[in-house]
Write a protein that binds this DNA or RNA. Structure first.
Length: 288
DNA sequence: CACCTCGACAAACCCACTAC
DNA sequence: GTAGTGGGTTTGTCGAGGTG
């Protein structure tokens, strides 16, 4: 999709790009010798910029594209760079602002699941994340990434697709779970849980040191990260429908990875019982 | 609850094109 | 050429929405 993208060129907006597509101009070389492109936008600086684009694409420099693409078109980077993606989700001990801390992190690379737990291996995250060129999150630009940056005192310089805004532009709102529901993405025994429940699980784990509790928390956290891939591919294909490339650039839905943890129903029940907020949900978690 | 980004909307600005 | 026009692009401001 980046090879068919012109709106990262200075002075090229969405309208001009869409117009050129209708005229059959779909490649960078095409721009340079199409009479549909104003002469001023075919001068040497533009030739140089396009040559630079080709070079950066060749060198897999996602970050360069992220700097020139309008943010609402960052989803386009996924096509060329879907194999350098880190799907990322964190859990914390609450929404307590600055006094809050990260409890667990899940990172899915499309094949393997990586997870990090406070007090065990959380610091390993900072070196692991450096291996990825592109981050995909839900609301991560507002929450996960600033939280990580402030807690670890690092800067995540990767290109970053925030699915919250991509999905909102497609008409899907209501949070990660809301979007999954609208798109028919199911999450069996973990449905009905939310971020606050992850806080309760962490508190319970602090008190009991129960490995079943931690497993349940990680199962939830990892499910969120893994779901991001399905959402990303779905959103990408839906976005493509508004371009002339829906038949050529479609990405097929990936197979689900084997998940390393299973949520424990009895733990969920027991933690729910202690919080009135989940009294209505409790009935969904009867023992078999 | 605190924090953060971006979409919406408006206004300013730029440029290709036309008429004379 | 020059001035006018209209559409597209860029810039600026503000509030909605989502995170555990």
């Amino acid at each position: 999709m980046l090879k068919n993208t012109f709106c990262h060129l200075p002075g090229f907006g969405e309208k001009l790009e869409a117009y050129l597509w209708t005229k059959g101009v779909t490649t960078w070389d095409g721009v340079l010798d199409s009479s549909f492109v104003p002469v001023r936008k075919r001068t040497q600086p533009f030739r140089d910029f396009i040559a630079e684009s080709a070079k950066r694409l060749q060198n897999s420099d996602v970050n360069w594209f992220a700097g020139f693409l309008p943010v609402n078109e960052h989803w386009r980077m996924f096509g060329e760079f879907s194999r350098s993606v880190a799907y990322l989700d964190i859990e914390t001990n609450g929404l307590a602002g600055r006094s809050g801390y990260i409890t667990t992190i899940s990172l899915y690379d499309g094949e393997r699941v990586h997870y990090y737990v406070k007090g065990r291996n959380l610091d390993k995250f900072t070196s692991d994340i450096k291996k990825f060129k592109l981050l995909v999150t839900y609301n991560g630009k507002c929450f996960d990434v600033p939280f990580i940056e402030s807690q670890f005192r690092i800067k995540l310089n990767q290109a970053h697709i925030d699915l919250r805004h991509v999905l909102a532009s497609l008409g899907f709102t209501g949070g990660l779970k809301g979007c999954e529901k609208s798109l028919g993405i199911d999450r069996d025994e973990l449905s009905g849980l939310d971020g606050y429940f992850a806080v309760l699980l962490w508190n319970d784990f602090q008190r009991t040191r129960s490995s079943l509790t931690l497993d349940t928390l990680l199962a939830y956290n990892i499910q969120d990260a893994v779901s991001l891939e399905t959402l990303m591919v779905t959103a990408y294909n839906l976005k493509l429908k508004k371009t002339p490339f829906q038949n050529t650039h479609n990405i097929s839905l990936p197979a689900q990875p084997k998940l390393p943890f299973k949520a424990d129903t009895e733990t969920i029940r027991s933690v729910m019982k202690k919080n009135y907020r989940y009294s209505a949900k409790l009935k969904d978690f009867r023992l078999p």
